[in-house]
Simulated scan of single mutants.
Amino acid sequence: SPQMLKRCRSKLPGMETKLGTFFAFPFLEDRFDFVATSYALHLLDDDQKLLALAECRRVLKPGGRLAIADLMFVDEAARQAHLAALARDGKNEAIAQIEDRFYADRSRLLRELAALGFAAEARQLTTYTHMIVARLK
């Protein structure tokens, strides 16, 4: 966002910044050694997530790394089991918050990363936060 770029420039005046989106980074192919995203993918639907991963892949150099920290479930079965447990406990507000966002299916992200040529590892950090670290082969 323009506001975040302004904040970045005030903290790091010598750093190059550009405005872009998950679907069109304003950089050429094979430009970066490392791409990171934290708590942004859950704002994208499942198809948009796949487009975003492909864009991250496009700008990474061979051997580059991608780190993703975001709201996820291990897979759809884990999501359904968690929502059922929340429903049994009457935690309707928590259910509404989960359904208001696009928490990722981690298994789907890992499959897509493999299809894009990444070797990836994943770890669950909290109930909802997962970390994926992937290296481009």
Results as ranks from 00 to 15, higher is better:
25 F>T: 02
72 M>S: 10
110 L>T: 06
52 A>I: 04
14 G>F: 07
60 L>T: 06
117 G>Q: 07
60 L>Q: 05
106 R>M: 12
114 A>P: 03
22 F>Y: 01
65 R>I: 00
8 C>Y: 07
26 P>I: 02
20 G>K: 13
66 L>W: 08
58 R>K: 01
109 L>A: 01
46 D>P: 04
62 P>D: 08
80 Q>H: 13
123 R>S: 07
92 N>M: 02
40 A>P: 07
69 A>Q: 01
98 I>H: 03
20 G>M: 08
62 P>K: 09
127 T>Q: 14
61 K>Q: 14
36 A>I: 13
97 Q>V: 11
101 R>K: 05
16 E>C: 09
68 I>Q: 10
11 K>N: 12
30 D>W: 06
16 E>Q: 14
105 D>S: 14
43 L>N: 01
34 F>C: 12
81 A>C: 05
83 L>K: 00
90 G>S: 10
78 A>D: 15
8 C>N: 11
24 A>R: 06
6 K>W: 08
75 D>Q: 06
97 Q>H: 06
89 D>W: 02
111 R>Y: 00
28 L>E: 11
19 L>W: 12
63 G>A: 12
66 L>R: 00
121 E>V: 15
48 Q>G: 02
29 E>M: 02
42 H>Q: 00
116 L>M: 03
68 I>F: 10
38 S>T: 13
111 R>Q: 11
57 R>Y: 04
35 V>W: 03
105 D>N: 15
36 A>E: 11
16 E>A: 14
120 A>M: 01
36 A>Q: 08
19 L>T: 12
71 L>I: 14
81 A>Q: 12
27 F>S: 00
89 D>F: 02
127 T>G: 05
16 E>N: 12
36 A>P: 08
124 Q>R: 15
110 L>S: 02
8 C>T: 15
120 A>R: 03
69 A>L: 14
79 R>L: 07
125 L>G: 11
37 T>A: 13
121 E>Y: 03
28 L>H: 11
65 R>G: 00
15 M>D: 13
35 V>Q: 03
44 L>Q: 06
7 R>N: 03
15 M>I: 15
116 L>G: 09
112 E>V: 02
51 L>S: 07
78 A>P: 10
62 P>R: 13
79 R>V: 12
21 T>H: 00
15 M>Y: 12
106 R>C: 13
63 G>K: 10
25 F>P: 01
71 L>D: 12
56 C>Y: 04
44 L>A: 08
66 L>G: 00
28 L>S: 08
77 A>M: 13
118 F>L: 05
16 E>P: 10
30 D>V: 07
5 L>I: 15
43 L>W: 09
105 D>L: 12
70 D>I: 00
30 D>Q: 12
120 A>D: 01
85 A>N: 09
